[in-house]
């Protein structure tokens, strides 16, 4: 490698260009293999970006995206005066914050507990059960939740049987956010625990043996061996989650919420969806919300990447 570099330094520009051309020719099959993927990213990730200009335009269908007149920052001014926008921003941050507080730590606890279980059979069965919901869509899960918590559902019938009053969970502002939190734990805890369990498995078993000989009890081992062993991956996932705090579960909310709980459940993504496809849409305002979210998101993700490099010595991706 070092030798190749010194050879490169001694080459004339013409030689260097010829070598580059030869490298490109030698890599022709690599470019061929890249082509389909690159075309995909160009077509479905980059081309749509031309539509971003709509945030500064008064869109009229017959004039098209490029033909519609410019209106400056009018859409953003309108947006920042909308109470619904601020409400959805607040909900996004509150719900994502609750997820960080409750949904994030639970799989770590699960993984540590699973590591203490030595009966291989029951452990495997429980893991299959716990990871299963991850592979179902929110359409399916919300159908099951609506049935379970509905007016004639099992939960209400138990409440009535115990002498309580029926609760309309899905339309109740006081419980809706908790419904989001618990249903997310139901879906993802087992799956997210796998990541931590795999990391725990890679901890050197001799550490545990040595600790046992030194008289460490179970709690000591969790505190001084298991926890330090997974701390890096926990920090990385935590930073990643902070970086995507503007995502509070679009698909989940879109399937579970209804007008009765917009006040506490409407998040930025569902707000964009609502103003785009309900009533009289203003594409300019919708795009402006998307722009707002996209820019904040990008800044947060770049910060997360920076913080991760600083603390863990490597980037997130």
């Amino acid at each position: 490698m070092a030798q190749a570099r010194t050879v490169g330094l001694r080459m004339t520009p013409a030689q260097r260009r010829r070598r580059l051309l030869k490298n490109i020719w030698d890599s022709r099959y690599m470019y061929l293999l890249l082509l389909p993927g690159v075309l995909f990213f160009a077509m479905f990730r980059y081309v749509p970006m031309y539509g971003i200009q709509l945030a500064w335009k008064e869109f009229t269908a017959n004039l098209g995206v490029t033909g519609s007149p410019w209106v400056g920052w009018e859409k953003f001014r309108f947006l920042f005066a909308e109470a619904d926008f601020w409400n959805s921003l607040r909900n996004t941050l509150v719900i994502a914050g609750m997820q960080l507080l409750f949904v994030f730590p639970f799989p770590i606890i699960l993984a540590i507990l699973f590591n203490e279980v030595r009966q291989a059979g029951p452990k495997r069965v429980m893991q299959i059960v716990l990871t299963f919901p991850h592979f179902l869509s929110w359409v399916i899960l919300s159908s099951i939740i609506a049935n379970l918590l509905g007016n004639n559902g099992m939960v209400n019938n138990i409440i009535v049987a115990m002498g309580g009053e029926k609760v309309n969970f899905l339309m109740n502002k006081a419980v809706f956010r908790w419904l989001l939190i618990f249903s997310l734990m139901w879906k993802e805890s087992g799956w997210n625990a796998i990541l931590y369990m795999a990391t725990i498995t890679s901890i050197d078993p001799s550490l545990y043996e040595a600790a046992t000989i030194d008289g460490a009890n179970r709690w000591h081992k969790v505190r001084y061996i298991t926890w330090p062993g997974i701390a890096t991956i926990v920090t990385a996932t935590f930073i990643l989650r902070i970086g995507s705090i503007m995502d509070a579960g679009y698909m989940q909310v879109l399937n579970l919420y209804n007008p009765a709980v917009y006040e506490v459940g409407d998040i930025l993504d569902t707000y964009i969806y609502r103003i785009t496809f309900e009533k009289a849409p203003d594409y300019g305002v919708s795009t402006a919300v998307g722009m707002f979210k996209g820019v904040v998101n990008a800044v947060l993700m770049l910060t997360a990447e920076f913080v991760s490099r600083k603390f863990n010595g490597e980037g997130l991706f």
């Binding site: 990730r45 081309v47 749509p48 919708s286 998307g290 993700m301």
Partner: peptide, 13 residues
């Protein structure tokens, strides 16, 4: 990963 067009631009495309 950091930035995308968003709902409307993709829809229009």
């Amino acid at each position: 990963m950091y930035f995308s067009g968003g709902l409307i631009p993709t829809y229009m495309m």
